[in-house]
């Protein structure tokens, strides 16, 4: 029995000049499942993540989250509803330390009111708890020794992990991961994927992942959507999709 999908896109369209990056894309992301988007370069995967995450407005179609139309909501409103994303090219807050990068993502809202900061000291206690929590995530990702390093001093792989750490810190219900293990060494990449599965099983987190490294990731995911030239050409379990002749053709033809 299939649950109601957490996220649905309906006939999404997005053009860049004359190029159709999304050409009627409809997908469903089931709750507490890991769903992966695959496809050759330029097939529209990242555009889809951008539209779902709110970085891009689609030219047509809808994005529904828990049956609410969120197509034109700004990113911070999506965050409030539990949708958080990472970026293919990491976007760390470069002059902040690694620890601070994580704290920014916190859902505690200590940073929303200047007046509260000025007039009380309550936030400091909460902040301590957040720091503890941030450290647990940093330890998990194996970058806790870098906590005081400025984010722009990190290597590419470490920045990827920082992106992941920020996303986890934000306690999402739906995590959009744009190439989470690209540039990460294989051992750590497997660790990250196992952790994703653990989060799915233990707290029912839902994932939508774009990744090229199928050799590592495929074994961890529940559902796969294969895209080609802005369209979904196949979907199902990883086995079903990978044995679909259309998918094989799309990859070979690229």
């Amino acid at each position: 029995m299939v649950d109601d999908p957490l996220l649905r896109t309906v006939d999404l369209e997005k053009h860049f000049g004359g190029v159709k990056a999304l050409d009627g894309v409809s997908i469903e992301v089931e709750p507490a499942k890991v769903t992966m988007l695959i496809g050759p370069n330029g097939s529209g995967k990242t555009t889809l993540i951008n539209v779902v995450g709110g970085a891009l407005r689609p030219d047509g179609g809808k994005v529904l989250y828990r049956d609410e139309d969120i197509t034109y909501l700004p990113p911070h409103e999506r965050y409030r509803r539990g949708i958080v994303r990472t970026f293919q090219v990491p976007k760390p807050f470069r002059s902040l330390s690694v620890l601070e990068n994580l704290l920014v993502a916190s859902r505690a809202g200590l940073d929303t009111s200047a007046a509260k900061i000025l007039l009380s000291t309550d936030w400091a206690k909460k902040e301590e708890e957040l720091i503890e929590k941030a450290f647990r995530i940093l330890e998990l990702l194996n970058i806790d020794h870098l906590w005081d390093t400025r984010a722009d001093q990190l290597s590419g792989g470490q920045m990827k992990l920082l992106e992941m750490g920020r996303a986890l810190m934000s306690e999402p219900s739906l995590l959009l991961l744009d190439e989470p293990v690209a540039g990460v060494n294989p051992t750590l990449a497997h660790d990250i994927m196992s952790h994703i599965v653990k989060l799915r099983d233990e707290i029912g987190l839902t994932f939508l992942i774009v990744e090229h490294r199928l050799d590592i990731t495929l074994q961890y995911v529940d559902r796969v959507y294969a895209m080609h030239q802005g369209r979904v050409i196949s979907h199902g379990t990883p086995e079903e999709v990978m044995s679909d002749p259309k998918v094989v053709e799309a990859y070979l033809g690229d």
Binding site: G54, P74, R78, R80, F87, P92, F93, A105, D111, T112
Partner: peptide
């Protein structure tokens, strides 16, 4: 404070800050 941290986050990477709420 966390407020200033959010400001510098916005200054450094606006889109990432918006994505993080």
């Amino acid at each position: 404070s966390p407020f200033g941290r959010a400001l510098r986050a916005i200054r450094d990477e606006e889109l990432a800050a918006a994505t993080l709420g």
